[in-house]
Design a protein around this nucleic acid. Structure first.
Lengths: 340, 340
DNA sequence: ACTTACTCTGTGTACGTTCACAGACACTCA
DNA sequence: TGAGTGTCTGTGAACGTACACAGAGTAAGT
């Protein structure tokens, strides 16, 4: 054993037992306040605990009890996103509050490098946590495979496509898209189009479905510009396409904030004012929403709730309940700013 | 032992030994790649490890080795601050990179409630971490006392007044505030005020002191608007208060970027142009500085470096070196952009 | 052939807990 | 008096690993 200089040895349950003149078992009973301990023994042990400054060694306890009473929260984000996406902090606090209530310790683990990935994988394997909440896993994520291999109770916030049987929480894209489109209609716009991105993903397809839901009879398929990805360039291209098809277009639902930012660029280019000539709304309430000029009206995810529900899912699995299949979808909230 | 349904038992070193037809000791040597293992034994054991899916139980390893190879990072912030202050993210990433390099796992623990405090205290006592970095501890913080009692190697980022012998890293808030205020004076402004936040903390108090240092005789106490927290809302309120007191104010030192962002909002609301009518400078050079319109002139705080240095201090204590006394102060840098 | 050195392997013990069990003691009731 | 019941206590085993030690085997040098 490496003795760290200047660091005194920790008192163990044996020291307490010796000090109080009883056995380990009795001390253990007092520490975990179980019944069948005499009043004298109890006070003697409590005095001894205070005297020697005893605190239970949880590592030893975990070893025999086979659990750690801790749940990991893994954040797997590139540097910039981690700092700019306010959702992450919210998710973290939401998870913490749910875990705290159940007397679980949340330990958050940040993955930034390959080295981190390996170390976190070892950490998870090491029995330090009883379960794990994963924020924004990637496709083919090594961590996901470690979780599967260990059968570790887990819940994902947002889900990559290759996530099969693992539970996740997300938002109801369709309902949210419908709601913000209705709000846009409510501002008196009559020719409303959509830049629909990533229709091959469920998020993209659901947002389009919500858009058509809201327009009902007035839905005009020619005013939907499909683009492949959630990128600035695709947003700009989509907006150009819409303007070409209908120069009098006066409302646009962009499938995400980045798309909206690109669209704003195209509108400026075409000499259209926002929100004067055209009202535009985005989706995500990401950092882009506050970077746009004018500030973007958009859909905010209930990030706190996402963290909370994910943590609750892990807790329920820890109680032995089967995880909910198909994912949990939460409702969103409209943030109305200046762009529409 | 509570058997969680559907969760198979983990393979141990014994299982590997049995599978490979060798003893525990040899398996242990392979796992920790020590010398003195025959080539055949090595391959047999590696095959056995893969077959039974063995991963070392770190809890057991810690128990015998008396260390966890993990360092805690405690964030003790009210909800709103945690979300808005980007420095926390930077500190966290800085600490993570230093710890990662030394092959230590960083586990971050969030304290939001009384309940959290107790649980984290137990967690620290439990031997889950070998040391701890504390971000923004409070005065009379129970966590600080736990750390002292356990003789746990620690380093604080920012330091409360009652921190006696524990090492900390921070910035020279007073000198930095003085420098940027002088720069603001240099642009020819004559009625300069300050939105002073969090005066109960040393960071807040020192920034105000630097501001008064710079103004000297010209300091006018009525042009200081004290607000409780580093938040957007408080920045807006502070600016409104300053405008009410002196409509001709033409320069503002905001105690942080978030405060400045809120102040810009209030200025826009009041029809004042920036930097035309009013020059404004912030503090932190956070993501907010680039989100503002116009881009913010501010003080760059080496937040990443703070986390890194704090982590390095803990690591050096872990190597048995004595902690640096008196604290480590890092230099700041003025970033001059468009807002003044 | 005998020491010496080096390589490799297995075993016992320890880390600090919890839990099951066995036993001691006191009290009640037939 | 005896059996039964309830309260309290101590002890051995187990959790899964690392480490020290002992011992076996091989090779080289005298």
């Amino acid at each position: 054993m490496v003795t760290i200089p200047g660091r005194r040895k920790r008192a163990t349950i044996h020291d307490v037992a010796a000090e109080a003149g009883v056995s380990r078992g009795t001390v253990s009973r007092v520490v975990n306040n179980e019944p069948y301990v005499s009043a004298e023994a109890r006070v003697a042990i409590e005095a001894a605990i205070a005297k020697v400054g005893y605190v239970p060694n949880t590592a030893a306890r975990n070893l025999v009890m086979q659990r750690s009473q801790a749940v990991g929260l893994i954040v797997h984000e590139p540097h910039s996103l981690f700092l700019e996406d306010p959702n992450i902090g919210e998710i973290l606090l939401g998870a913490n509050s749910a875990l705290s209530q159940a007397d679980y310790q949340m330990v958050s683990l940040v993955i930034e490098s390959e080295r981190d990935t390996e170390r976190v994988a070892r950490y998870l394997s090491g029995g330090f946590v009883d379960g794990v909440v994963v924020v924004s896993a990637r496709e083919q994520d090594p961590i996901t495979r470690v979780i599967e291999r260990l059968d570790l109770p887990a819940a994902f916030v947002g889900h990559p496509q290759d996530l099969r049987d693992l539970p996740y929480v997300g938002i109801n894209n369709r309902a949210a898209a419908r709601a913000i489109t209705e709000r846009l209609i409510g501002t008196g716009r009559s020719r409303i189009g959509m830049i629909a991105a990533a229709l091959d993903r469920d998020s993209g397809a659901d947002r389009l479905a919500g858009f058509t839901d809201a327009l009902g009879d007035r839905f005009d398929p020619s005013l939907v510009a499909p683009v492949p990805l959630y990128t600035y360039a695709d947003g700009r291209d989509g907006m150009r396409a819409l303007l070409a098809r209908d120069p009098l277009i006066d409302g646009v639902f962009a499938a995400s904030d980045v798309i909206a930012a690109g669209a704003l660029n195209a509108l400026r280019e075409a000499g259209r004012s926002v929100p004067g000539d055209v009202g535009i709304v985005g989706f995500d309430d990401s950092a882009w929403a506050l970077r746009c000029q004018p500030l973007l009206s958009t859909v905010r995810q209930p990030a706190n709730g996402l963290g909370q529900r994910a943590a609750e899912s892990v807790l329920s699995q820890l109680r032995g309940e089967a995880p909910e299949l198909g994912g949990i979808l939460l409702d969103t909230e409209i943030v109305w700013r200046d762009s529409a």
